[in-house]
Computed example of a mutant assay.
Amino acid sequence: MREDVINFYGYDRLYNDQFGVDINRAIEFFELNTRYYPDSYNAWDSLAEAHMTKREKELAIKFYKKSLSINPDNENAKNKIIEMKDM
């Protein structure tokens, strides 16, 4: 399955309340993406966002840092790490 399709389903479960938000299911989709596409900074960034939404700060920071290790220019990850450290 394509990375963007898996990511779409993850974000659908993370934010689309039409059928009920399910953060744990979103995390499952994003984890699947990191297994299929371990070198994708976006896959790790999305997984981090789901953990941030679930208020799992340590995991979110860990995965944002993983995303940054793949793509040091990922401004979203940089900003989110700073934002969470200020929380």
Rank of each mutant, 00 (worst) to 15 (best):
N16M: 06
L47I: 00
K54D: 04
S46R: 02
D12F: 07
F29S: 03
L59W: 03
D86N: 14
A77H: 00
R2D: 11
T34G: 09
R55D: 09
A43L: 06
I70S: 12
R35S: 08
F29M: 08
I82T: 09
E3C: 10
E75R: 15
R13M: 13
D22T: 10
M1D: 12
Y11N: 13
S67D: 10
Y41I: 02
N76C: 05
I82H: 10
R55P: 01
Y64W: 10
Y37S: 09
F30S: 01
S46F: 00
A26F: 03
M84K: 04
N33G: 10
A60D: 01
D12E: 09
N42S: 10
E83Q: 04
R55F: 11
E83S: 04
I70H: 07
F29E: 09
N42P: 01
S40G: 10
S67T: 08
E56T: 00
G20N: 02
E28H: 03
L32K: 06
T53F: 10
V5H: 14
I6R: 09
A50C: 12
K65M: 13
L47K: 02
A60R: 01
T34Y: 05
F63W: 09
R35I: 01
E3P: 04
I23E: 08
A77C: 11
F29K: 08
K65C: 04
S67Q: 15
N24A: 07
E83D: 06
K85I: 00
Y64H: 06
N24Y: 15
I61E: 02
W44Y: 15
Y11I: 13
F19Q: 14
T34S: 07
G10C: 02
E75I: 15
M52W: 00
G10N: 01
Y41V: 03
Y36A: 14
T34K: 08
V21T: 10
K62P: 03
M84A: 08
K85C: 05
L68Y: 13
Y64P: 02
W44I: 00
E28I: 01
L47V: 01
M1Y: 15
R35H: 04
K54V: 02
F19I: 12
A48V: 03
P72C: 11
D12I: 02
P38C: 03
N76V: 10
Y64S: 08
K85E: 12
D73W: 04
Y15R: 14
K66Q: 11
T34W: 06
D73R: 08
R25P: 00
R25L: 13
E49K: 15
E58Q: 06
D22Q: 01
I61Y: 02
A48P: 14
A48Y: 05
Y36V: 12
F63H: 12
E31I: 00
P72Q: 14
K62S: 07
A48K: 06
N42T: 05
